[in-house]
Design a protein around this nucleic acid. Sequence first.
DNA 1: GAAAAACAGGCGAATTCATGCAAAAATCAG
DNA 2: CTGATTTTTGCATGAATTCGCCTGTTTTTC
Lengths: 255, 255
Amino acid sequence: MSVIENKILLKKERQLEIIHQINLHNKILSSDLSLILNVSEDTIRRDLNELALENKIVKVHGGALSKSYNVSATQADTYAYDEKKVIATKMIKLIKDGMTILTSGGTTMRAIANQLPNNLHVTFFTVSPLISLELAEHPNVEVIFLGGKISNISKISVGGEVVSKINDIKADFCVLGINGFDQEGISDSDYEVVQVKKAMIKSSRQVVATTISEKLNSDLRLRVCTLNEIDYLITELSPENELLKPYQGLVKYIL
Amino acid sequence: MSVIENKILLKKERQLEIIHQINLHNKILSSDLSLILNVSEDTIRRDLNELALENKIVKVHGGALSKSYNVSATQADTYAYDEKKVIATKMIKLIKDGMTILTSGGTTMRAIANQLPNNLHVTFFTVSPLISLELAEHPNVEVIFLGGKISNISKISVGGEVVSKINDIKADFCVLGINGFDQEGISDSDYEVVQVKKAMIKSSRQVVATTISEKLNSDLRLRVCTLNEIDYLITELSPENELLKPYQGLVKYIL
DNA sequence: GAAAAACAGGCGAATTCATGCAAAAATCAG
DNA sequence: CTGATTTTTGCATGAATTCGCCTGTTTTTC
C-alpha cells in the first residue's frame, strides 16, 4: 500500500490520488480516503462528488467505485497486476495454434489477452467488450463477440440470446475469471453472469479457472460450478503452495 | 531542496526556476515559491498564470502541477476532442426519452456516449465494444451489443450476422461517425464497415451524420449513402459557416 | 423500526485570487 | 547621461475557493 506523505496536497493532487486508489482497489470507502489523505470526510465527499460529475468515478453510498472496466484505466493500474501477469503466462502455455477459446470478462482475463503472443493463431469467443478490444490488437487472433444486452454492472453481454449462442459453440477451452472460489466450487454474485458462465462451461471441452490467491476460499451467493467440473486451476502461486492444499485432488490440474 | 541565492532574479530567470521546481517535485505551492524566490505571492501568481497560458504547467488553486502529472484522466487526448464535444452537445439535444438509437463506432461517437446526460432513458444498439462500454456507464441507458466478428482494423463487429441482426431492428435514429464526406454523400474505405453502416441506415427512421469539419469534402473509395438519405449533418461549426454552404438544401437539417 | 452511518447544505475562518493603482525598475531614444 | 516610456512589482481591496464543523435529513443495517 502506497504511503501518502503527511504533507499538504493540493486539491487536484488529492483527487488524482483518489482516482489512483480507486483504480487500484476498484472501490474505496470515504472513511479510508479520509485517513489516507488526512482530510475530513466532508472534503472527501465533495471530491467524490466532483469526480463523479466529471464522470471519472462512480459514487455510491459510503464511497466510490471505479468505472469498473474502464478502457481508459491502464492495465498497470489494475489491482494485483503482477500476480495477474504470472497467471497469464501460465494460461498462455496451454494455448496452441488452431484452438477455439471461450472467455468471460474480468481484469485477469484482460491481462491474459494483453500478454498473448502475436504469433498465436486462435479463435476467441467473448462476451466482454473490453476483452474483445484487447484481443483484437493481435493480428492472428480471430475475435467473435457474442452480442446481447450489456450488463451495467459486470460490463459483459448477458441474456438468453447470449446463452443460446454459446450453446451453439464447441470450444477447446473455457477460461473463466473468478469472483468466489472455495471447496464447493466457483461462485458469483450476479445472476445473469452466472447463467453465461454456466453456458460457457457446458460448451467447452476443458475448463480453466483463473484467480489471484486472494480470492481463494471466498464464497458468493450463487453457484457457477463444482470443483470436479474444473480442469485447470491457475493462480499466481506455485502449485505446492499451502493455500492450494485443500484443492489437491479435487481439481485435475493445479498450475 | 536547492536554496536560491538572495540575489534578485530577472523575470525570465525566475520563471525558469519555477519550471525547474515543478519538474523536480511535480507540484509546487505559490507560498513556497514566494519564499524560495523572495518575491511576493502576487508576482508568483502572475508568473504561474503566464506559464499556464504557455501550456508549460497546470495551474491550480494554491500553486501549480507538472503537466506530466496526468491531470486529464479520460479521453481528452483524442484528436480534436473539443470539436467533438461540441458535436456531442448538438447530437444529445436530438435525443428524447424512450428512443431507440443505432450507432457505429469512432471517436466522435465516443464523445457523444461520454457526454450523454445520466437522466436519459434510451436504448442503444451498437457494434462498437468501446462505445458499448462508454454507454454502459449510464445507469438509465440500455445497451445492446450486436455481436459478430470483431474487425481488427475498425474495432467494430462486422459480417453477415451483424447485418441480419440490424435488419431486425427499427430505430429512431442512426448516428454515424464519418470518415469521408462530400457532395456525393458518405464514403468509407473498409468494405465490411460499409455493409454494416448501410444496414444501419436502412433500419433507422432518421439518419444523423456527425463529423468534424476537417473531414468535409473528403472522398473515400466506397459509397455508404447519398446526401438525400441523411436527415441531420452535425459538425462543430455553426450552420451558417461558409464550409457548410455546399450542403445547404442537400441535407435536410444542418446543425 | 430504531440505532448508526452517510449525506446535503449552510456557515465561518482561513487562504487564495483578480484587479486596480502607484512606486520601482528596466528599457529606450536622443 | 538624462528623461520618457514601458514593464514589472508590491500592496490594498473585495471576491472567490477551500475546508472543517454543524444541523437536520436520508439511507443503511441489524
